[in-house]
Structures are given as structure tokens and as C-alpha cells.
Amino acid sequence: MDAHRRLLDLSLALTVLLSMLPMLGMAEPLPEVIRISTGAGSPLTPKLSGANSGLTAARQAVEQEFAADGVRIEWLHPLGGGVASNEALASGAVDIGYAGEFPAIFGRAAGLKTRFVGGGFRGNNAYLVVKADSPAHDLAELKGKRIAIMKGQPWEYGFDRLLRSKGFTQADFKVLNLSLVDSRTALEQGRIDALYAPGVYGANLAADGRGRILWSTREAPRDWQFAADFFVAEDFAQKYPTAVKRFLKAVIRVSAWASDPKNGDELFQTWVPQGYSVEQQWKEYRDSDFLFRFSPIPDPFLLAHYREVANYMLENRLIRRPVDIDAWVDRSFVDAALRELQLEGHWPEYDRDGNPLPQVARQ
């Protein structure tokens, strides 16, 4: 107990000392290297990840931010997604990770010491797809049928909300846990009756005429869509707060560019090596609010969404203890970065239902 107390006192003293360096006329030290997991590696292109993290890596925004300081930037593109990001953070292999809300909450509930520092990518849709010749035209006609979903992924929450909104639970269906590739093969072979898949992948399952979208989160509240965000190792954030702020400055520059739909074609061209053309990617992003999608701010909407997902996971015994979302989030870094970039107000903040809030100046 005494050793634990001494460790807490030392951590507090270090935090206070670092905060006093500017007043003492001393520059806060920067790390020699910043290691970042994109949490979105593709089996098609392991060196190019999707989502906001992969976009930031592809545009070398972090490298540019630290170029004059000689800080080396190392990117990890794990094929295991957010789960692999958690593992890399837990082992100390990376300092900053990127993950969807499901794996991020898994990690937090398991004791992973991180700070939730910035929004990455929200408003991602998911699609319930049947074969083109399926007799089913609504969810009720699939009762008792086989539906495949990749369990433990961020889009699971929207799937459960859909079922409950129609008076069902997962027990009313034969829900199978299959990978995206395996579920598509199973649907084409008639071994399942429907599948639930995310993003560009889901939006294009019906493109060749062999599938039909029965329902999607486009028809649902924004909270049913899923997100992925940035998380920093607690000890790294304490030791190098300026580096974390400057990392987020790089992310924000990219997010500001991506938030303009006029840049959509160039944005999607970056992700073409993931396996989808620019035209195919627009199928997912059509009619999207790009400011909402690329907001870097952990605003009331995002916090409320994480609370709901954490409650769902606890109620369904996916995690064993509750997660205090408010204690996890530290938006001081992103607020400071926005001020320095003079981008306060560029993104509206959204309420729990996804409606823009009146602009309020933050100190």
C-alpha cells in the first residue's frame, strides 16, 4: 500500500514539474520516437490502413509536425485492428493507438491505462444484406433464420439496437460469429440467410447484383453508427503532454482537410489500395455530413455514445466491470491544439442525439 502511494505521489510530482517547465523557461523534452498504431491494417495492403489513422499516416502529417525536432515517427498497421492496438499499448510497443469503441472499451475494462484524447472517425454505417433472390423484405421475415455478424466489433451495437427496435433479441435468430470474408462466402453459397457488415464493405455487397440491402443504419439514429478514436498510453501522456498535443495538431490538420466534401475524391483515392474504387467508397459516404464524420472533438455526442456502448457490453457480459467514460476522456490536448491552429468552432459540437450545439467558447 505504501509503495502504491509513493508511486502515485511520484506521478503527481512529475506531472506538476512538467507543467512548470514553461514558467521556468525550460523546454519540455520531446521523445526520441513516437510509435503509433493505426488499428486498421488491411490484408490487401498491410502498409496502408484505412480510416482517419491511416489517412494521417498516408499524408505524413505527424512526420511534418515533428520534422524540425528530429523526432522519429514509427507507424504500426496491425491486421488485428483495435484489438491489436490494445495489445500494442499494453505491451509498450506503441505510445498512441487507434481503435473502435468496442475494442477500446474492452481494453479499458481490462485495466489498460490510456487516455481517450481525440475523436477520429464517427458516423460509420453498417448494412443488413440478404441474397438478391431472398424472399425476405423486412427483419421479421428473418426470424429464426441464420444471420452472420463479426462479433465483438463496433457495428455489433447497431445490430442489437435494430433487433430491439423491432421487438426482437439476438435469441430470436441464429446469430453466427463469422469474419467478413467468410460471411460473404456463406451468403453466396446459401449457408446463411443474411449478414451484417460495416462501411464500404457492407455498402458494396449488393453492387454485383448478388446481394440486396434489407436495412442499414442510414435509416437509424446516429448513435447506432460506430466510431473509432485515438488513445494515448497514460505514462506517455504524463511524460510528454506537448508531444501529445502536437500529434493531435497533425491529426486535426488532416481532419480539417477531410471534412470538406470537395476533397472527397482525393480522400478516397488514398484508400483505393484497400480494395475499393473512389466510386465504390462514395456509396458509403453519399449524403454524409463530413464535419460530423471527421470531428476530432470528444463532444457530448461521442461521450454519450461510448456510455451506451459500455452499458450494452456490461449488460451482455462482454466486460466484467463498468467503464467510467468521463474519467477516461481528456480533451485538454485537443482543445489546446484547436486553439493553436485557430480552428475553434470549425467543427460544431453535437448533443447526444447528434444535433449541432450552439457554439460555446472553451477556456
Rank of each mutant, 00 (worst) to 15 (best):
N355H: 13
V254A: 06
Y157V: 02
P322Y: 01
V232L: 08
A243W: 09
G39F: 00
Q64S: 06
Y98G: 02
A58L: 13
P348C: 11
S11N: 05
Q189R: 11
R161C: 15
P300T: 11
D351E: 14
F301Y: 15
H77V: 01
S19Y: 14
W155P: 14
R72F: 08
G82V: 04
A243S: 03
A336F: 02
G209S: 04
L302C: 12
I325H: 14
Y127I: 01
N177R: 07
T185K: 15
A227Y: 13
L17W: 12
Y98N: 11
L30N: 04
Q170Y: 10
A186G: 13
Q60C: 09
R35P: 00
R320A: 15
G119S: 02
V16A: 12
D330C: 01
D335T: 12
K113Y: 02
S255Y: 10
V360R: 09
L205I: 04
E156R: 08
T15E: 12
G209K: 01
D289S: 06
A27L: 14
F168R: 12
G80C: 04
A327C: 06
V117R: 00
D193P: 09
F106G: 03
A99Q: 02
E74T: 06
D324G: 09
T56Y: 00
E279G: 05
V71R: 05
S277R: 04
D235V: 08
D133W: 11
I73A: 04
F268G: 01
L187F: 10
F121C: 01
L24H: 04
A256G: 10
P221H: 06
P322S: 01
G50W: 00
R210A: 03
R108H: 00
A250C: 04
K166T: 14
P241N: 02
L128Q: 05
I149P: 00
L44H: 05
E141K: 09
D95S: 08
E141I: 08
P348V: 02
L248V: 07
P46N: 06
R320G: 14
A227M: 12
R317E: 09
L162I: 03
G111N: 01
F268A: 01
L343Q: 02
K113W: 02
S91A: 11
D223V: 15
R161V: 10
V117M: 05
Y285L: 07
R35E: 04
A207D: 10
V323K: 11
M20G: 10
E308S: 13
T114K: 02
W282E: 00
D133N: 06
A228P: 05
G50P: 05
A90K: 03
R5S: 14
L24F: 03
G144T: 04
D326E: 15
D95T: 05
E315L: 10
G50Y: 00
P29S: 07
S255W: 07
R161N: 05
F333T: 07
N263D: 12
W347S: 12
P296A: 08
D229V: 12
L18F: 04
I252D: 10
V272H: 12
T185N: 15
D208N: 07
G209R: 00
R253Y: 04
P348G: 15
R5W: 13
S183D: 05
A132Y: 10
A104G: 02
N204A: 01
A228H: 07
E315C: 05
R317S: 06
E63W: 14
D353Q: 15
R6I: 08
F66K: 15
V33W: 07
Q363I: 15
